[in-house]
């Protein structure tokens, strides 16, 4: 499976710069390896990827166990901002980091658009 990581990197970078209040994004495999990332300085790509995979897998398990069905999104809200994980099909997970000023509705729409774009590249 040859994934165009260069193109993915560009999409992520554009998403981060063009979306207000978004601080970083990473696309990772379900087993926790980075495919592409545009993260704030000081954040370790490998670590962020592994954590994203762990969180998504647990979230999916919880969704299943508590009869919530398939998980579309996992949401972490801290007093300094948001971390949002969105599944991008079988092969990838998108992590988006946004600051606390972000408007949730707008953010969700932008993420949806980014996911659609990423899926096109992955397939």
């Amino acid at each position: 499976m040859a994934i165009n990581t260069e193109k993915l990197g560009i999409v992520l970078q554009n998403f981060v710069t063009a979306t207000s209040d978004v601080q970083g994004a990473a696309l990772v495999t379900p087993d926790g390896l980075p495919l592409a990332a545009s993260l704030p300085g000081g954040m370790d790509e490998e670590r962020v990827s592994a954590m994203s995979a762990a969180m998504l897998s647990l979230g999916e398990r919880i969704g299943q166990e508590l009869a919530r069905g398939g998980v579309d999104r996992i949401y972490v809200e801290g007093d300094k901002g948001y971390g949002i994980l969105t599944s991008c099909g079988e092969d990838a997970v998108l992590l988006v980091l946004a600051d606390q000023k972000a408007k949730q509705g707008v953010l969700m729409l932008e993420i949806k658009r980014a996911v659609a774009e990423i899926k096109l590249i992955l397939n």
Binding site: T29, D31, A53, L58
Partner: peptide, 17 residues
């Protein structure tokens, strides 16, 4: 989850949490 690194040489799946 499906392993995509060297692990896949040993087995298909690997624990992520």
């Amino acid at each position: 989850r499906q392993a995509t690194d060297e692990t896949s040489l040993i087995k298909q799946k690997t624990t992520v949490a």
